[in-house]
C-alpha cells in the first residue's frame, strides 16, 4: 500500500438527460490513493457529492474487471484512458501524477446518444447483433461437440475475435464514429468457424446493413479503433469482413 495520496482536479461532463445541454464541471479531488482504481476514485467523489446534497456523477460500470464492457468513458481524450489494452475500470490511479487535471467525458458518437452524464445508449449494437450476429441453431439436436474437428490455429483466431466486449471504445475513438471493428469481430469469428459457414453471406449483409442504418460512420482505415480497443482486437478482422462482404455480393 502506498501511503502518499494525490491531489487531483477532475473536469467531468455533466448532462441532466438526453435532451439537455451538458457542460464540464470541475471538482477538486484531494486524498486520492495511487492504489485506487479509477472508478473507486469516482466512487469517492460521489460519496462526497452525496454527503453535500449534490447529485452523484452517473457512470456505467458493473464487473470492474475489464470483461463486461459496461464502463465507457473518455479520459484525457482517450477511450478508457491512457493505457493500452485495458478498460477504464482496470485503470489505477498510480497512472496519474499529483496535481494533474483529468478530463472525463462520455463516449461521443452520433449512434450513442447520451442518457445522463457519462452514460450513453449503446443499443445500436444490440440491433446489429439481432440482425445477424448468431448461428441459427435451435436448442437441442446439436451433434457431438467433437463431431467437427477445428484446428487449434483457427479456434484460437476465432477466440481472438470473440474476445470483443462490445464496449464501443472503437466507435468513440474513431473520428467517423465507425462500428467496423465491432461488427467485423463477430463476422470474423463466425466466418472462421465451420459452424458459421452456412450463413456467411446473409450474416455479413444483414449486419452491415443494420450498422449503416444506425448512423455509424464509414471506416477510413485510420486504425484508431485497434489502438484503443481494450481487448486489442486486430483490424485484420476488418479486412476479413471486407472480404466476406465482397464474397457475399459476388456469390
Amino acid at each position: 500500500m502506498s501511503e502518499q495520496t494525490m491531489n487531483l482536479k477532475l473536469k467531468i461532463w455533466r448532462q441532466k438527460d438526453k435532451n439537455s445541454k451538458g457542460q464540464f464541471v470541475t471538482y477538486a479531488m484531494p486524498g486520492v490513493s495511487p492504489d485506487m482504481s479509477f472508478l473507486e476514485m469516482l466512487d469517492l467523489l460521489n460519496l462526497k457529492l452525496v454527503r453535500n446534497g449534490e447529485e452523484a456523477v452517473a457512470f456505467d460500470h458493473d464487473c470492474r474487471e475489464g470483461i463486461c464492457g459496461t464502463c465507457s468513458m473518455f479520459i484525457n481524450g482517450r477511450a478508457h484512458g491512457p493505457l493500452k489494452g485495458i478498460t477504464a475500470c482496470q485503470l489505477h490511479m498510480r497512472t496519474f501524477t499529483d496535481g494533474e487535471t483529468i478530463v472525463i467525458e462520455p463516449w461521443r458518437a452520433k449512434a450513442f446518444p447520451i442518457i445522463k452524464d457519462l452514460v450513453v445508449d449503446r443499443s445500436a449494437f444490440e440491433r446489429i447483433m439481432q440482425a445477424g450476429g448468431f448461428v441459427s441453431v435451435r436448442t437441442g439436436g446439436a451433434p457431438d461437440g467433437n463431431a467437427i474437428p477445428i484446428s487449434k490455429a483457427v479456434a484460437d483466431e476465432a477466440m481472438d475475435a470473440a474476445a470483443c466486449i462490445g464496449c464501443g471504445a472503437c466507435v468513440a475513438a474513431c473520428k467517423n464514429g465507425s462500428a467496423m471493428l465491432f461488427v467485423s469481430a463477430k463476422v470474423s469469428q463466425l466466418a472462421l468457424l465451420p459452424q458459421g459457414y452456412a450463413e456467411r453471406k446473409t450474416r455479413v449483409e444483414a449486419m452491415v446493413a443494420q450498422m449503416d442504418a444506425e448512423g455509424f460512420g464509414n471506416c477510413s482505415n485510420t486504425y484508431a479503433c485497434e489502438a484503443e480497443c481494450p481487448k486489442m482486437i486486430s483490424v485484420e478482422h476488418i479486412a476479413r469482413l471486407n472480404r466476406e462482404y465482397v464474397r457475399a455480393k459476388l456469390v
Binding site: V135, G145, P149, S151, K152, A155, Q195, G196
Partner: peptide, 22 residues
C-alpha cells in the same frame, strides 16, 4: 453433455488441442 454440444454448434470458441478436438 448436451450443453457442450449446443454451445459448440452456436460457435462458442472452446479451447482445442492440436488435433482439432476439444
Amino acid at each position: 453433455n448436451n450443453i457442450i454440444d449446443q454451445c459448440v454448434a452456436q460457435g462458442v470458441p472452446f479451447a482445442r488441442e492440436y488435433g482439432g478436438l476439444l
